[in-house]
């Protein structure tokens, strides 16, 4: 039977060292949202030596573009988007101390290696379970890039957000059995 880890952000090296691929995680605390367009802007920020809109060291980024919040709710449905599209930007953020990313689907070999090097993990949330996941999100505030609409950077406060450790810092992966094929 796999372990379930109760974690609170920000994360430390000690936290992630405990995690093994396949373990279940219940995450609480602050996580930041960013997907394709926000990543692009953040990397452009770094290239211009400008400060990022969010702290990175020890933090968690969730790849999500939620639906609009209906009256009486803090957020709409909020499941993960496919992570590989963020691979070109991820190494840069890992080098700045990003400790975990949350998304769905496998990562590139370069990102997997960078996660080992920088001691960071990749957590998988269940794609398409967006209404279920929304119930673990307690606060939501747009922090930057509001013009991007669903792609804006948000600060979420989550409580027992359910995820599965997809890649650990030792090279373990839940996706290993399904090897990618080339054309």
């Amino acid at each position: 039977m796999t372990d379930t880890h109760i974690l609170t952000t920000p994360l430390t090296d000690e936290h992630v060292a405990e995690l093994r691929a396949g373990d279940r995680v219940l995450l609480s605390g602050v996580v930041y949202t960013a997907r394709d367009a926000a990543h692009r802007r953040m990397i452009e920020c770094l290239e211009r030596d400008e400060p990022l809109p969010i702290p990175i060291d020890g933090q968690v980024i969730y790849y999500v573009g939620p639906t609009p919040a209906p009256p009486g709710r803090v957020i709409g449905s909020a499941g993960p988007t496919t992570s590989y599209r963020m691979d070109p930007y991820t190494q840069r953020l890992l080098a700045l101390g990003l400790k975990a990313t949350i998304g769905k689907g496998r990562r590139s070999q370069q990102v997997v290696e960078a996660m080992k090097r920088h001691r960071a993990v990749y957590l998988a949330a269940i794609g398409g379970a967006a209404a279920l996941i929304a119930s673990s999100i307690k606060e939501c505030k747009v922090l930057a890039y509001e013009d991007l609409g669903p792609e804006a950077v948000r600060r979420l406060v989550v409580e027992n957000f359910p995820a599965i450790v997809a890649n650990d810092i030792y090279g373990g992966s839940v996706y290993e059995e399904t090897t990618e094929c080339s054309d």
Partner: peptide, 11 residues
């Protein structure tokens, strides 16, 4: 949950 709470199935 989506059906009962009238929420989108997926974001």
């Amino acid at each position: 949950i989506a059906r009962e709470h009238q929420m989108p199935l997926c974001q």
